[in-house]
Design a protein around this nucleic acid. Sequence first.
DNA 1: TATTGTTATACTCTATAACTATA
DNA 2: TATAGTTATAGAGTATAACAATA
Lengths: 166, 166
Amino acid sequence: MWDAMVDAAGKEELGEAGALDVSSIEHSVIFQIKRTQALLTRRFQSRFAGFDLRPGEYGILLLIATNPGRKQTEIADALGIQRANFVPLINSLERRHLTERRPSLHDRRSNALYLTPYGEDFVQGIYQAEATFEAECTVRLGGAKSREAFLALLSRLVAGAAPTSP
Amino acid sequence: MWDAMVDAAGKEELGEAGALDVSSIEHSVIFQIKRTQALLTRRFQSRFAGFDLRPGEYGILLLIATNPGRKQTEIADALGIQRANFVPLINSLERRHLTERRPSLHDRRSNALYLTPYGEDFVQGIYQAEATFEAECTVRLGGAKSREAFLALLSRLVAGAAPTSP
DNA sequence: TATTGTTATACTCTATAACTATA
DNA sequence: TATAGTTATAGAGTATAACAATA
């Protein structure tokens, strides 16, 4: 053992023991939001593993459900997905007979997106699981009021201009 | 034009006009935190473009600065980076003479990580830019008190058990 | 037997450019 | 000329498995 010279209770010039000083990142908004998002996504994925959907596909199904007949670009834009990256996602959903593309009646360049009857049933399961997951978030955040405050703070972070004090 | 039959002011059976109904994702914690994180990371990256660092490298430099002599696994763990993915990051920093690996005095398996003198200077610039960025986040969130509340809510989301009302 | 650092590898997400058909 | 969808491709970030050296 090379550590015979080390004072077990204290520090030594090279190589300390014990927990790291993480103060520089612990109070950083950018670091903490990144960590929280990563952990929440993992939790979400493990909870929704039964649906066998990639992260982006949940949003696509939900938005088509409430906005049937819209074109791919519109759904993609609303989710922040580029149209080139949207194609393999909607292909995968269509291959599973959850959605379908119909030619638009107004613009022969675009596809109108719809859920299949099977897709409608499928989305009901997502609604329920989503509601359960969000309810758990609400509990963690300390209630509905706290949850709304949290969402409001998130939207303030993304807002175009920095608002002054309320 | 195929849309002669469409009532410009209202809706038609297939293909509506106007904004999408995004209520299903707008009030979702998981969707909003993901969107906010993505936008904040872009903003951070554009603001820190001058440093030519990948996202993970900021945290590594900050943690080595406050924890010199720690081994790779410790720094990686604190940042949620797997040790296999840590290697190319620390290699890149070392190639730029910002950090260096020294053999540990206690454990010949591990490397002790240090900033070079140049790395120390470099980190000062990061501190300043970070402080500016975080100060901007504070303004957006509505002040220091609101910021602390936001960080507290983030930590509640990641907490192991769901806490009851405070 | 377990841990540290490393390599290799794969998979996802994201980003850009270019093509086609329509407008 | 611009837009919608598509293809191809490249870059990050992240995941696991396996290995050598050391504990």
